[in-house]
């Protein structure tokens, strides 16, 4: 019964999701009941090695992080397409293999382009 089996499978996944929330929630609640409370403005200020905090923390960051994230999205989707292919490629034979290699090659050309453009050079 495939339909019922799927319901049981994802019942487990859902139960473990709730279990995880329960685990963290319980730990934080027990700690909340036991711990002391003694806040003051200095203690609650942003930690900057004991110095007086300068400026905002929403600073500009290196654009390379953003470029790496863009590249990751492309290749992660490629990996997603690879998974169903990996399970069935023996039945599909050499044609599907060549097609998948063509797909990978096209995206690798993109990787080489990004490389030549200096995306991986951190300045």
């Amino acid at each position: 019964m495939p339909q019922e089996s799927i319901i049981t499978d994802y019942g487990f996944v859902g139960f473990f999701f709730l279990l995880g929330i329960f685990f963290v929630g319980a730990a934080l609640t027990v700690s909340w009941l036991l711990r002391p409370r003694d806040p003051n403005p200095i203690k609650n200020s942003t930690y900057e090695c004991g110095e007086i905090v300068k400026g905002n923390s929403r600073i500009q960051f290196n654009v390379s992080y953003y470029l790496v994230a863009l590249l990751f999205v492309i290749f992660d989707i490629e990996a997603l397409f690879l998974i169903p292919w990996a399970v069935t490629f023996r039945e599909l034979g050499i044609v599907s293999y060549m097609e998948m290699m063509g797909f990978i090659l096209i995206l690798l050309v993109g990787l080489v382009y990004a490389w030549k453009k200096g995306v991986f050079q951190w300045r």
Binding site: S57, F72, F75
Partner: peptide, 20 residues
């Protein structure tokens, strides 16, 4: 916090790069 932000940015970049 500036340290946290830098750590978080680095963690995100590193984890997604090695994910592939």
């Amino acid at each position: 916090n500036k340290y946290s932000l830098l750590g978080g940015m680095r963690a995100a970049a590193q984890i997604i790069s090695y994910e592939l």
